[in-house]
């Protein structure tokens, strides 16, 4: 038991937590009744994916992906070791996720605007009440 815990969970402990957060978000999207709660679930789902991507770029013993002035001066003088990839964290996932966060908040704004439109038309944000009203509307027509 202990050995399987160490072999299986410990090296991927962070990935296990990301999967748990992602599944919490998915559960909220499916099972929660309130539309705002569904949106919080969607945001949890999104952040778990962002966390996974950024964690792929982590390197043991590496610094932040900004070249300090010392290393920059060495690199300009022709030293090959100053820009050793082991010294800097992988910048590529950072770039991809940075834009995804800002796009995420813009699309969250669109979703919240849709929520406000639903509230204006139906007077509620509970999914079952909205569906009930839509059904009666449909029956009347």
């Amino acid at each position: 038991m202990t050995s399987s815990f160490h072999d299986w969970i410990v090296p991927h402990f962070n990935a296990w937590v990301y999967v748990i957060i992602m599944m919490t978000g998915l559960w909220a999207v499916i099972a929660k009744n309130n539309l705002i709660k569904k949106l919080i679930g969607l945001s949890l789902f999104q952040t778990s994916i962002l966390l996974l991507y950024v964690s792929l770029g982590v390197k043991e013993g590496a610094g932040i992906p900004i070249i300090d002035h010392e290393a920059a001066a060495l690199a300009m003088s022709g030293s090959d070791d100053a820009l050793n990839p082991d010294r800097f964290a992988n910048p590529l996932p950072h770039v991809l996720m940075l834009t995804a966060i800002v796009v995420g908040v813009a699309t969250l704004g669109v979703a919240l605007a849709l929520c406000q439109t639903i509230y204006r038309d139906f007077g509620t944000l509970e999914e079952d009440e909205v569906l009930e009203q839509m059904k009666t509307l449909h029956d009347d027509v």
């Binding site: 950024v54 770029g57 992906p65």
Partner: peptide, 11 residues
Amino acid sequence: TMGAVDVAFTE
């Protein structure tokens, strides 16, 4: 803590 300072700033 992961060294992704730009992403942390944005978040």
